[in-house]
Each structure stands twice: as C-alpha cells, then as structure tokens.
C-alpha cells in the first residue's frame, strides 16, 4: 500500500508544482459551458432545461482533454518501466494514477459545476444534484479515460484517438449523471439514477484497473 500512496503523492506533488495544467482544464470547462448560452440564446427556461446535459458533456470533455498526458510523461522518461518492474501490482499503480487525475480534475469540476449551473438558472436542488452526480460519476470518467490514455501510449494521433475510444464507453455515465440532475427538475427518480451512477463507478473501479494494467504492460513490452 505504501507504493500506492507514494505514487499518488508524487503525482499530486507534480501537479501542485505546476498548477497551470489543472487551471487550463477548469478554464476550458468554464469557457465551453459559457459558449452554449451564446450559441443557443439567453432564454432562461430553455437553458435550465438543457443545463444538466451541457454541464455534464462539458465536464466529460474537460476530463478527457486532460488525460492524454496521464501516462505519457512516465512512458517517455522511463518511470513506467520502473512501475512495471515494481514488486507491487501494476493494477494499484494504475488506480493511483487515475485517483490522482480524479483529485486534480474530477473533484474541482464537481465543485465548479454548480457555480456554472447558476448561469443556466438551475434550481438550488438541481445545483446540489449536479455537484453530487459529478462527484459520484467523474471517477468512472477518470478510469475510462485512463484506459484510453494507456491504450494510446505512443500512438500516432494520440489525443483525438483517445477521445474516440473513451467517448462511447462514457455514454452510460453521461446518461445517468445528466439524467439524475434532470430527474430532480422533472420530479422523482433522482435516487435511482444516483444509485445506478454509483454502480457504474464501482463497476469501472472493479474492472478497469486490470484493463489499464494490461494496456500498460503491452505498452512496456
């Protein structure tokens, strides 16, 4: 377990030393969400109606945008080879990397999104639901994106390919995340949505570290 915490602490330290990387992702999220009212028009009713979907999609894109460097630096400087040789399971290393990614992007996005929701005229309950669903759902996004990042290590067209691989797999998370927020507005079913969203996150947690480790192993071969 000490390897896990050490890797996690190292990744967080690296981000802490260069906070600009995280800020760019959050700025992207803010700018991207603001573009929608500008494109669609300032009708409050319409915006409140589509806020959940837009904020969830923007959070999904922001999370993916920051993922293509998740393993790339370790791959290039040889740290990945050390992880492959380490005496503790690579699955834990994969989990630590994804957890670090979630702490520096998923968590801030979940905090920031309700404030953006204010601009869309979401109700107080809607805002709380938005933050809560992102809190529960973004770990799944970090893991799915982590798998796509591991699969595309050293590939040509890495970034666009990563999005192409990850987006279809993110569909269930998006449906239940945005659906839960919408359920608050239309009345009923919020807890069901949230429970399924949690189940999806747990399913990702239970399966994807193995897939990511397998992808990293074949990248290191």
């Amino acid at each position: 377990m000490s390897g896990f915490t050490a890797l996690l602490a190292r990744d967080l330290r690296l981000v802490w030393r260069r906070p600009g990387d995280v800020m760019v992702v959050l700025a992207f999220f803010v700018v991207a969400t603001v573009l929608f009212p500008l494109g669609i028009g300032p009708e409050t009713n319409l915006l409140a109606r589509i806020a959940a979907g837009i904020l969830w999609c923007a959070a999904l894109f922001a999370a993916l945008l920051s993922l293509d460097r998740l393993f790339a630096a370790d791959y290039e400087d040889g740290a990945l080879d050390l992880l492959l040789l380490a005496p503790w399971p690579l699955e834990l290393a994969a989990l630590a990397k994804c957890l670090a990614h979630w702490i520096v992007t998923g968590l801030p996005l979940a905090v920031l999104a309700p404030f953006m929701g204010l601009l869309f005229g979401l109700s107080g309950e809607g805002l709380a639901a938005l933050g809560l669903t992102l809190l529960v759902g973004t770990p799944a996004l970090s893991l799915i994106g982590g798998l796509a990042a591991a699969l595309t290590l050293g590939a040509r067209r890495g970034g666009a390919l990563l999005a192409l691989l990850a987006l279809p797999l993110c569909v269930p998370t998006l449906i239940f995340g945005a659906g839960a927020v919408e359920a608050v507005a239309t009345g009923g079913g919020f807890l069901t949505h949230l429970a399924i969203l949690g189940a999806l996150a747990l399913l990702s947690l239970a399966t994807l570290p193995w897939a990511i480790a397998a992808a990293l192993r074949q990248a290191g071969e």
Partner: peptide, 14 residues
C-alpha cells in the same frame, strides 16, 4: 495507430 503493428493488435484486443 502504431508503427509497430503488433502493439496495435494488442491494444485493440484489450
């Protein structure tokens, strides 16, 4: 997506 075709095979398999 890989210059090394076998890497692409294994990644796609996963």
């Amino acid at each position: 997506a890989y210059d090394d075709a076998e890497r692409g095979d294994r990644a796609a398999a996963i």
